[in-house]
Structures are given as C-alpha cells and as structure tokens.
Design a protein around this nucleic acid. Structure first.
Lengths: 111, 111
DNA sequence: ATCTAAGTACGATGAATGTCAAACTTTGAT
DNA sequence: ATCAAAGTTTGACATTCATCGTACTTAGAT
C-alpha cells in the first residue's frame, strides 16, 4: 500500500560529521555527480531506478551508498523502492555554495 | 639575476578546454587542495618549494603537474625556482563560484 | 501461494592513483 | 671550475576504486 517503511532505513551521518573530503570524493565521480544534478533539477524525490544512469544495478547501489555516507542524499523506503532526497540545505549550512557551484558547473558541462 | 625564463615554460591548457572533471579530480586530493588554498591566501606567487607540504619533492612535482594540466595554476620559471599562480579569474569565468566554494570549505575544514 | 520488480550483498577484476627513492638537469653562487 | 639548490624524470609499489555478474532478500501484485 505505498506506505513509508521506517524499519529498513539505512544510517545517515549527522550534518556535523560531514567532511569536505568525503563530499568531494563523492562528487568527483561522473555517475554520482549526475545523480546529484538530477536530484537538484527534480521537484520530487527520485527512486534509485528512476535515474538516467548507464551502469548496472549493483554499481548504482554502490554509488548511492557512497552518496549517502558522504551525507549528500537521504534515503527512505517506499515499498520495494528506495527514494532519494538531496540534503541541500544541510550541506549548504556547512559548506556554503559548494553543491550549487558543482551542480551548476555539471549542468554546464553536459550541454 | 632573477630573470624570468620563457624557454622552459610548460604547456598550459586554454581556458576553454578546462573540464569540470579534471578540476574536481585535481581538487579531490588534500595535498593539491592545500596548494590551491595556500595560493588563494597568498598575495604573491609562490615557488614550489615555498609551500607547506608533507610529501617528497617528486610527489610535489607530480601534484603541481596535475594542477597545471587541470588549468588551475599557471607556472613560470625564475632561476631554478618554479613560480605558481592561481588562475582564479579564468576558472571563475567558466565555473562561477567553484574555486571559491571549495577553498572556503577547505579553510573551514582545517580549523 | 506464486511471481515479479526493486535493490542489496558478495566476490572478482582491471585500471587508476598517490607515494617514494634514485638519478639526472639546470641555474646561480662561490 | 665547482658546488649546492630546485625541480624533474623514471620506475616501482601498494592501495583504492569503479565495474560487473550472480545470488539473495523483500514487498507488492496476481
């Protein structure tokens, strides 16, 4: 019935523990940067399978894992789907303008 | 006599050929990020040996090479010393706010 | 009760990367 | 003419990383 599942929520790092090193390591990968950019462009949250990615499912899982550990995205289950949100405001509080600059540069690079 | 040597100038990429991917690959390394931050904080250009780095000379050379290839720094010789400048304005033109956000975040991360 | 869709977990693998030491080059000073 | 300082080059090495296929789990639909 499309209800949110609280049991299988993976661990998310507190905002205060987010490091620049991890954020950059996350965003240096084109696939992960694409995920963040697509999230930034979207109005609603996106499930893992809803992204335009050119990698296998297991590889995609790997990338989402790294993005979550870096503190860039928040994940929650809805049925069998895992939804993704960009933690933009939280990261902006720690590293002002960082995500914005990278996302903008990424968008520009793809055109 | 401390004159600038034009002969041994290494190749620098044109601004238009600078890619986000290369810039991020350059700045994801802590040593290279430290170089850029020190350059950003300094008033004058800095020679390779003038940075506070905790790596060997050959490793430092490697890092400067990558920063130059990425288009982040400009290098020129003065005697036996290789001077380094940050190509801030040029990169700002291509990726607005990117260097600033990363340098600011890096400074904050070190304190 | 089955079956399918959506992800995850687990190796395995091949490529890239940061590091250093040693030998070399070049410039400026003695 | 020698010597030292500043970087570079090369080669080696260990580590990390992105990728995939296969097997597995879980939830919802039939």
């Amino acid at each position: 019935m499309g209800l949110v599942d609280d049991e299988r929520i993976p661990r998310h790092p507190d905002v205060r523990t987010i490091t620049l090193q991890q954020v950059l390591e996350a965003l240096v990968d084109p696939v992960r940067r694409s995920i963040v950019t697509q999230l930034s462009d979207a109005r609603a949250d996106i499930k893992c399978g809803g992204f335009d990615l050119r990698v296998s499912k297991s590889t995609a899982t790997h990338h989402f894992h790294i993005l979550r550990e870096a503190g860039l995205i928040r994940q929650y289950y809805v049925g069998t789907s895992r939804m993704n949100t960009l933690r933009r405001d939280e990261i902006d509080g720690v590293f002002p303008g960082l995500v914005d600059a990278i996302v903008n540069a990424d968008r520009a690079s793809r055109s």
